[in-house]
Amino acid sequence: MSTPDQPTPLTPAEAEARRRRLAEVFGDVLPETPDEPRAQGRPDSWYEENRPPHHG
């Protein structure tokens, strides 16, 4: 039995049907690529060093 805190997990077939139904209703609104691709040539350390303070 599921509770509001722990919904019943979907089977792979149910998850696929749900995804298709959402795409049918709302369209394909989200891109398949990351929001902000990283600039070429910058190492990960640059992003860590230049992270704004409010991003932890």
Rank of each mutant, 00 (worst) to 15 (best):
W46F: 10
P52L: 07
W46S: 07
R42W: 09
A17V: 00
R42Y: 04
L10K: 12
V25K: 10
T33F: 14
S2K: 08
T33S: 10
R38F: 10
T11I: 04
V29F: 03
G56R: 09
P52W: 08
H54T: 00
S2F: 10
A15K: 12
A15H: 07
D35G: 05
M1D: 15
E49P: 03
P31F: 11
A39H: 03
R42G: 01
R18F: 03
E24N: 06
G27I: 07
G27P: 12
R51F: 00
A23R: 14
E49R: 15
R19Y: 10
P43T: 14
P9D: 09
R38H: 06
L22M: 06
D44A: 14
W46H: 12
F26H: 13
Q6C: 09
P4Q: 02
T3D: 13
M1E: 15
E32R: 01
D44W: 06
L22P: 01
A39G: 04
S45C: 08
A13M: 00
D35W: 02
A17E: 15
E32W: 00
R18M: 13
E16W: 00
E48H: 09
P31I: 03
M1W: 06
L30R: 09
T8N: 04
N50V: 03
T3I: 05
E16A: 11
N50M: 04
P4N: 06
E14L: 01
E16P: 05
V25S: 02
P52A: 04
L10T: 04
E49N: 09
R19E: 15
A23F: 09
T3Q: 05
P7Q: 03
D44G: 11
P9G: 09
A13K: 10
G41D: 07
T33M: 07
F26D: 11
L22E: 14
A15L: 08
P7C: 06
A13Y: 03
H54C: 06
R38P: 05
R20E: 13
R18E: 15
R42A: 06
E48R: 15
W46P: 04
D35V: 00
R38S: 13
R19S: 14
P12K: 11
P7H: 10
V25G: 00
E48P: 01
H55E: 04
L30K: 06
S2P: 13
A15N: 12
P53V: 00
A15P: 01
R18G: 06
V25R: 07
L30I: 13
A23S: 06
D28L: 02
E36Q: 08
A15Q: 15
S2C: 02
L22N: 04
V29R: 15
F26E: 14
P31L: 03
R21K: 11
P12L: 13
P37K: 13
H54Q: 11
